[in-house]
Design a protein around this nucleic acid. Sequence first.
RNA 1: GGUCUGGUAGCUCAGCUGGAUAGAGCAACAGUCUUCUAAACUGUGGGUCCUGAGUUCGAAUCUCAGCCGGAUCACCA
Length: 566
Amino acid sequence: MKGSSMDFKQKAADLIVAQTNLPADQVFGLIERPKNAKMGDYAFPCFVLAKQFKKNPAAIAGEIAESISDEAFAKIVAVGPYVNFTIDHNLLIAQTLQAVLKQGQHYGDQELGKGNVPIDMSSPNIAKPMSMGHLRSTVIGNSIAKIFEKVGYTPVKINYLGDYGTQFGKLITAYKKWGNEADVKRDPIHYLFQYYVKFHQEAEDHPELEDEGRAWFKKLEDGDQEAVELWQWFREVSLKEFKRIYQELGVEFDSYNGEAFYNDKMDAVVEELKDKNLLVESRGAQVVELGQDENPAMILKSDGTSIYLTRDLAAAEWRMKEYNFVKMLYVVGNEQTEHFKQLKAVLKKMGYDWSDDIYHVPFGLITQNGKKLSTRKGNVVFLDQVLKDAVKLARAQIDAKNPSLANKDEVAHDVGVGAVIFHDLKNDRLDNFDFDLEEVVRFEGDTGPYVQYTNARAQSVLRKAKALGKEASLADINLDDEWAFQTAKDLADFPRIIARAEEKFEPSVVAKYSLALAKKFNKYYANVKILTDDEQLPARLALVEAVSTVLTEALRLLGVNAPKEM
RNA sequence: GGUCUGGUAGCUCAGCUGGAUAGAGCAACAGUCUUCUAAACUGUGGGUCCUGAGUUCGAAUCUCAGCCGGAUCACCA
């Protein structure tokens, strides 16, 4: 934590402790940041001391402020009941820039834990297009993986594909009735999805279709050659399509073990539950009782077939054996909260204490025009289309703003896709939002492109400096303007921001931070002429370089590229 | 109805383990490009922090109750 503002807060706490004999951790906890920067950088409220010393807080603050001093602080004064500390600005700037430039992209790396952390994420269904909902799971999971990696863990990104289940019986039925091979080969997801939607429409008037679907699924389960071949084909072409989109998003997986992978592992779980006397018959089904107020966890339906909880139990056990995880995360919509409660509860009953290491990382629902998206009704927002539109808009923006840019297509991709990803990550995971393309693909204000643009400007300055034969230096830093200080203070916060994002499984913490830092730097840029040739030029360049380093790293943690020009 | 979750500016949202005049972005209006990329910066207007009690020296933040919205409540995933 060397070089961060942690040092200063700790220092302030130490000074208070030495003077008051209050417990160190209490003092540290009480120290806050004044909302108004003019008040100083840290403040210690003296209310708690009022009773102890039987004096009014303002008087106590005055006495404390007068009796302590330290070279780390330019000013320590009492304002009302507060002892306000003003950091030696240049000291903080110098320390922070030193830390960032020396550590480069590793600035902010920490050892908060270690071991494997499987992250169950994305998990689209075969033969269905990826929607904005899958985008959320994908980008949130991807970002959490990067954040966990930065603090010492080894993330394992698992794409738990929806590649099995009764819907494949329906799909086979639909394909055989209305489909043809050429269409599927040409545009697999599009046509397969069309068949699927048509099946549901037709089934409303012709319920016998459902029976046909069930029959085909039975055949699939029994290993019927035609059924298995069709299923494999559907899976293969779908996966190929998904991988294309993942490439667009810059997301890679460590495992594509989907639902089908666990088909042969469920019987063992059912046996285990029986052996442990946890299975009870209820209304013809086999369940695990979870207590008075809880719904029982269904393991086998009344027709004897398994259900997704059964499969998830098998998957959890298998993953424990395979990865010996220290934590396991499921990045799945909040509508499945109950399911994961049950999953954890059943594992606990089975005697697995590692159930406590499983976390459901839920996220809010995306609607369109206020209505819930429904795959079956064909009311979806296709992720593929959104990305295409975003890139196209970004390209138009470049043509308008920077027509001489060299690699326009590449940058348009980074900016367009970056805008979509950033938009999804900047708000609290649990917030619901209504999909609106214009809103998602914005380039101004609190957006990904704003952060990217800020970085591009910083890079531009560094390029120009290099052309002039100037470069950043940590020697003799003496930046005394307020904008530089505010920027440096944010830079110093980066390690703590990452720690908080990890603790809360919350990429938005990093996204908001990147916006705040970009804003501070833009003010600096607007008010300070960086490339003035004086003795502080190397110091200013050090600040610019540090900002670019941290912005780039923050964006990387979000899964967003940071082009050097745009 | 039970459980979970949310209610902050016209809109979308920040506000960390309670602390000093409640903050951004968008939208509106007014400025700033012969000067490091104006995808930026500056300024103006805009708020009963859902309501009511309680805890506290101090509450947007914690507790309880109520109102409103969302999710969910075993044989889909």
